[in-house]
């Protein structure tokens, strides 16, 4: 694999990140990721008149993680809550002049963090409940946040998941990888991490089919 280079926008936001810190008495905050997966981001925000008045982030992570935290908070600042909710990883990546596919995993966290902080705000201040029903469709939705580092697409759109069944708290998944795929372990760990976060799943069985 060729050596990876960041764009000058990524480097600039990595060197001089905007909105670093924590807001005291925030209206919403969240922490996503874990040192185990390599990165962690926290986002805290203040909302006034349904607009994001102030937003800050902290990051334990690599340059793409820090740069995305910086750009996502910049993009969200001043937007209405509903507008901010619609921000995507792609919006952030485009603003940064692109991100290497292998770095999607690290950089998507800032976007997840923003969404989680907004959900926290909605839950606390507005009483909105984000209840998730658990079925095969919602599991597939969750697996859409597992990124295949080689291409930057999620593992569902990448059609790596060949079979999925949910019954009595048990998820069975069949996933296919090429024999030489270096990302296999990484993807498996990510699947585990995501499914473990979902309430109602007691048992996860992932079968790897190599071809």
């Amino acid at each position: 694999m060729a050596a990876i280079k960041y764009t000058k926008e990524v480097i600039e936001h990595f060197k001089n990140p905007k909105n670093v810190g924590e807001i005291e008495n925030p209206d919403g905050d969240a922490i996503v990721g874990s040192p185990a997966c390599g990165d962690q981001v926290s986002v805290s925000l203040k909302v006034k008149d349904n607009k994001i008045e102030d937003i800050k982030f902290l990051s334990y992570g690599c340059a793409s993680n820090i740069a995305t935290g910086s750009i996502v908070t910049e993009l969200a600042k001043g937007k209405t809550v509903d507008e901010a909710k619609k921000l995507t990883w792609k919006d952030a990546a485009d603003k940064l002049g692109g991100l290497p596919p292998v770095k999607v995993h690290c950089s998507v966290l800032a976007v997840d963090g923003l969404k989680a902080a907004i959900e926290d705000y909605e839950g606390k201040k507005l009483g909105v409940k984000h209840e998730k029903r658990l079925d095969e469709q919602s599991i597939i939705e969750e697996l859409k946040s597992v990124i295949y580092p080689k291409t930057g697409n999620n593992i569902i759109d990448e059609k790596l998941v060949k079979y999925l069944k949910y019954e009595n708290g048990k998820v069975e998944i069949e996933i296919s990888f090429d024999e030489t795929d270096v990302y296999k372990q990484n993807v498996l760990e990510e699947i585990d991490e995501h499914l473990n976060e979902m309430d109602g799943i007691d048992d996860i069985e992932v079968k790897v089919v190599e071809y």
Binding site: P35, N65, P149, Y183
Partner: peptide, 19 residues
């Protein structure tokens, strides 16, 4: 993060270092 396959360093894991 700096490795091409995003795997945690296997040597540091083997000597008991956490992530």
């Amino acid at each position: 993060c700096a490795s091409s396959d995003l795997k945690v360093n296997y040597i540091l894991s083997a000597i008991g270092r956490d992530h």
